[in-house]
């Protein structure tokens, strides 16, 4: 490990400055009394107060959280079962299935959004025409809303679950599973007592990934939400108004939340590592 030269330090500071200065400015101006985005007049918490009395923001936050939890849960269950099922498929079928699952991951989000929107549009017109012909009068169906959002979010989340649980499944020691069978478990018991506990960390982390993707998603939601607003959609409608310091306040809060989540999870990690290394040392001591 060589010590860094001065120009290397300057370069690093410059890049991290580039990454963080805009966010810092954004947060700083959330405390600015005037609506100006350039002149700092006086310190205030007003924009935070406004934010917490802003019905649109609060409602969209609730929508985002509900969608995130439901879609992450469904995607995790669906993805985990799928990973196990796909693992049992023949190699050629498996390649095809994985190839199609890969599409939402590699496709630009706008294409995923547009294609799902078209699906729902076609669904609406078909159902409407069938209903109209049965009932004898014009019915126009509009399914856009929470349901379509959920379907879209589950769809873009499932592949991440499959891609993170699948490899873990292959790494499992099959002998442990066979031992469980030999010791009298039926396959179901062996699965729940032996296989599933081994997969739990991967399943849990993919659940968290799904949550964050879902809360963060703007583009796909934008095309599939109809008139329902998720938090990113509400943010987008606020940015259109040009000057709204509530956005700055919201950014500051989100940044604080993200930072604390990361710090806490890192703290847990490093404590676990310390405990592990202590345990390892204790083991050595015994030997």
């Amino acid at each position: 490990m060589r010590k860094m030269r001065w120009y290397q330090r300057v370069y690093m500071v410059a890049i991290f400055g580039f990454l963080y200065i805009p966010i810092a400015v954004l947060i700083a101006f959330s405390f600015n009394e005037s609506k100006s985005r350039t002149v700092f007049t006086n310190f205030t918490f007003n924009w935070y107060k406004n934010l917490f009395s802003n019905e649109m923001i609060l409602k969209s936050l609730a929508v985002s959280l509900v969608i995130a939890f439901i879609s992450a849960t469904v995607a995790t269950v669906l993805g985990t079962t799928a990973a196990i099922g796909i693992n049992s498929l023949k190699k050629r079928t498996r390649t095809v299935v994985m190839g199609i699952s890969y599409v939402p991951v590699i496709d630009p989000e706008i294409i995923t959004g547009v294609s799902m929107m078209l699906l729902f549009v076609v669904f609406n017109t078909q159902i409407s025409s069938v209903l109209s012909s049965i009932l004898g009068f014009e019915v126009s169906m509009n399914s856009f809303g929470i349901t379509t959002l959920l379907i879209a979010h589950i769809t873009f989340n499932v592949p991440y679950v499959i891609f993170s649980v699948g490899p873990k499944l292959r790494q499992l020691d099959r002998h442990v599973y066979e031992a469980a069978l030999d010791l009298g478990c039926n396959p179901r018991q062996a699965f729940f007592k032996v296989v599933l506990p081994e997969l739990t960390p991967a399943i849990f982390s993919s659940f968290l990934i799904c949550l964050t993707y879902s809360i963060d998603d703007f583009i796909i939601s934008y095309f599939t939400s109809g008139t329902v607003q998720t938090l990113p959609i509400a943010i987008y409608s606020m940015t259109k108004k040009k000057v709204s310091p509530e956005i700055n306040a919201l950014s500051a809060i989100m940044f604080a939340v993200i930072l604390s989540i990361i710090l806490v999870s890192n703290g847990i990690d490093s404590r676990r590592e310390k405990r592990l290394s202590r345990a390892a040392r204790a083991e050595e001591g015994k030997l």
């Binding site: 669906l78 993805g79 079962t81 799928a82 196990i84 099922g85 796909i86 693992n87 049992s88 498929l89 299935v97 199609i100 699952s101 599409v103 939402p104 294409i111 547009v114 294609s115 799902m116 078209l118 699906l119 076609v122 379907i151 879209a152 589950i154 769809t155 499932v158 499959i162 499992l172 099959r174 599973y177 396959p187 062996a190 699965f191 296989v195």
Partner: peptide, 30 residues
């Protein structure tokens, strides 16, 4: 290893309905 092909079924239905069919619809509309 624990093998159960039928577990893939719900996802396969989902995948065809919400990944494959939408792409076909895009091509159809185009």
């Amino acid at each position: 290893m624990f093998k159960k092909r039928s577990l893939a079924a719900p996802y396969l239905v989902w995948m065809v309905a919400f990944i494959a069919v939408p792409l076909v619809i895009v091509v159809y509309f185009a």
